[in-house]
């Protein structure tokens, strides 16, 4: 990564350009007094800007958690909406400290673009939506159906691979954009619509009768989404990575936004370490305070609270936890222990 270029882009980092390796995102954020967080330009449940200018959403809450860890104040974030085209350049150019915008973790993006995914906080993947009167309960039952898919997406390729692998005869019908794909499904031109699962739940809300559509539990592709940082600051990367782990561990430990204060009096060693009552040296090793994880949970809740509020059972989207459930509860979320 061209350090000089970033320093040029961000005057505040000029001094860093003289160092052999840039390693001061955390210091820079502290000095600036807020975190600059790249989000999508408006995606139901993930990042939405309200009329008053404030932001909400799953991706937004991750940055608020990070700000709470650093400043003990989740409001110290500036959200920078970014298009799919601009997002990685903005990160590389140092215009943002972190990209929290549903971006799929791939080899190309890490090794090719010089970025690091700090983990996965949402396992998305290709799914299928059918009409309720179709009694299928599995994507394997989609033989002899017409399937609507948006042209030029990985979903078209994904669907045809899934069908051929499973000896399913299905007719793929492509549409130029999202709305026309949905219209194809709604008007009965297709029996099935396929897209990434989170997108299907959002699209379903646009149907005149959402309850007439059912989204199958199958996920047939890997779209792991997570926060992204530059690959030149391992200390920052490590902090972001552990904030994600902390939110997941909090749910597993039962630490919530409403009991996090009480948790400081817990007798359970894992809980005591989590809130920093024991193992008080762990936070400072990340460059933050002993109660860093408790700050994050106090600000936005644990992973389950964030999920439910924004995209899960307490939201309009109502996306089942599915893969994004804890490993102990039927999903695959698994965070290394804080110790």
């Amino acid at each position: 990564m061209p350090i000089g270029f970033r320093a040029f882009a961000l005057a505040g980092t000029l001094f860093a350009a003289t160092l052999p390796a840039f390693s001061g995102t955390l210091d820079e954020v502290r000095k600036r007094g807020n975190l600059v967080c790249g989000v999508s330009m408006g995606l139901l449940g993930f990042s939405e800007q309200k009329p008053d200018g404030s932001w909400t959403g799953f991706d937004v809450d991750f940055c608020r958690a990070l700000a709470a860890v650093i400043f003990d104040d989740p409001k110290k974030v500036t959200f920078q909406p970014l298009s799919a085209l601009d997002r990685f350049d903005a990160l590389k150019a140092g215009k943002i400290d972190i990209l929290s915008r549903n971006s799929t973790w791939t080899l190309e993006r890490e090794a090719g673009l010089g970025l690091l995914f700090a983990g996965v906080n949402f396992y998305d993947g290709q799914g299928f939506m059918i009409r309720r009167d179709n009694k299928a309960v599995s994507a394997l039952e989609l033989n002899r159906t017409r399937v609507c898919v948006q042209a030029g997406t990985t979903n078209a390729q994904g669907a045809s691979e899934f069908f051929s692998t499973n000896s399913i005869t299905a007719e793929l019908k492509t549409f130029p954009d999202g709305p026309s794909t949905l219209r194809g499904f709604e008007t009965g031109e297709c029996d099935v619509m396929t897209a990434d699962n989170s997108g299907l739940f959002a699209e379903r809300l646009r149907l005149a009768r959402a309850s007439e559509a059912v989204i199958l539990p199958d996920i047939v592709s890997k779209e792991p989404l997570g926060p992204v940082v530059r690959n030149d600051d391992v200390r920052w990367y490590t902090l972001v990575r552990w904030v994600n782990f902390a939110l997941i561990n909090a749910e597993e430990l039962g630490v919530t936004s409403s009991n996090v204060t009480e948790a400081k009096r817990s007798t359970k060693p894992d809980v005591r370490r989590f809130v920093g009552v024991d193992g008080a040296d762990l936070g400072p090793k990340l460059g933050v305070t002993a109660d860093w994880a408790a700050r994050a949970v106090a600000a936005v809740g644990n992973y389950g609270e964030i999920y439910d509020r924004n995209v899960g059972s307490k939201s309009r989207l109502g996306i089942p936890r599915g893969l994004n459930q804890l490993w102990t509860e039927g999903g695959i979320l698994y965070a290394p222990p804080i110790r």
């Binding site: 959402a210 309850s211 059912v214 989204i215 539990p217 899960g312 059972s313 109502g318 599915g322 039927g330």
Partner: peptide
Amino acid sequence: EDGPFARQFVFFRSSEPPGTIV
């Protein structure tokens, strides 16, 4: 009928036999 609490099939890893209630 509708919303998150409507009856639906979901992804759920389990080593319990089919027919088990969790």
